[in-house]
């Protein structure tokens, strides 16, 4: 791969734009609780670009992991070997997550709804007889409750962006403004949902997810048509700055180490 100067045209995929936008969302963050998959890619990209001191926390019990490449799983040996400390799983949840020590929780989703509630449990409304049995909650319910804020990274599709999730595995804003406070959840909830089309943020008055940024080359219509509710568009809609050459080089080095060398 040749390194293109900033002035020449750089091409990228929508997934790459998503990971870059997610990594930028970690600016100014001290510690991030990282889910596996897209969140892990973005968090590791952030640590290798603009946030070298970002503390990556994984639910397997690793604090301050600095893996060379992307971990294969949430309990990859490289996460433990490069960590500042490895603690037990009860400790990671009770001492580190529960009291609100972690600024950002970085989650994926199988289904997400208008109020950023997340479902990773079952597709179909009959829990006892689901259409699709998904992996389940993992650490997400308490990450979503107790981190200072939550960032969700998920590809857009009508199947995944629904008006109401079939099952609330992790609470976003419940049925709207005030629900988190009524439930006594400590963290302030999802601040951004970053997709392959753009960025959604909760409306300050209603907490309904609203399109606030479009990735370059994506139209509002394209962003709206893969959302299962009537997506509102912010009056202050902006265009996400495109990935820089450096961001793309580092990202490709992480996701496809052989191809980039």
């Amino acid at each position: 791969m040749t390194t293109a100067p900033e002035t020449t045209e750089v091409t990228w995929t929508s997934d790459e734009m998503m990971s870059v936008a997610a990594s930028r969302a970690l600016g100014g963050v001290t510690a991030c609780f990282v889910g596996i998959g897209l969140p892990s890619t973005a968090a590791n990209l952030a640590r290798r670009t603009h946030a070298p001191d970002l503390v990556l926390v994984y639910e397997s019990g690793t604090l301050g992991s600095k893996p060379d490449g992307l971990p294969l799983s949430i309990g990859d040996g490289a996460l433990a070997q490069t960590a500042d400390a490895v603690v037990s799983v009860p400790e990671i949840f009770n001492y580190w997550l529960q009291p609100g020590r972690i600024d950002v929780g970085f989650l994926g989703a199988a289904q997400i709804d208008r109020y950023a509630n997340i479902n990773t449990t079952v597709i179909g409304t009959d829990y006892a007889d689901p259409k699709v049995r998904l992996p389940g909650a993992g650490g997400a319910p308490e990450i979503a409750a107790s981190c200072g804020e939550v960032i969700v990274v998920v590809r857009q599709s009508a199947r995944s962006f629904v008006d109401r999730v079939d099952f609330v595995t992790s609470v976003g804003y419940g049925r709207g403004k005030g629900d988190r406070e009524r439930l006594g959840l400590c963290g302030r909830g999802p601040s951004r949902v970053i997709t392959d089309k753009g960025i959604l943020e909760p409306d300050p008055d209603t907490c309904e997810l609203t399109l606030t940024s479009l990735h370059p080359g994506v139209t509002v219509r394209e962003a709206r048509e893969s959302i299962g509710w009537d997506l509102r568009v912010s009056r202050d809609l902006v265009t996400t700055p495109p990935p820089t050459g450096e961001e793309l080089t580092v990202l490709r080095g992480l996701t496809d180490p052989k191809g980039s060398k």
């Binding site: 949840f93 529960q98 829990y127 909650a137 409750a145 609330v168 595995t169 609470v171 419940g174």
Partner: peptide, 13 residues
């Protein structure tokens, strides 16, 4: 005892 599950459908099932 923990702060957990609050508001989720896990509590119902």
């Amino acid at each position: 005892v923990l702060r957990g599950y609050t508001g989720t459908d896990l509590v119902r099932h």
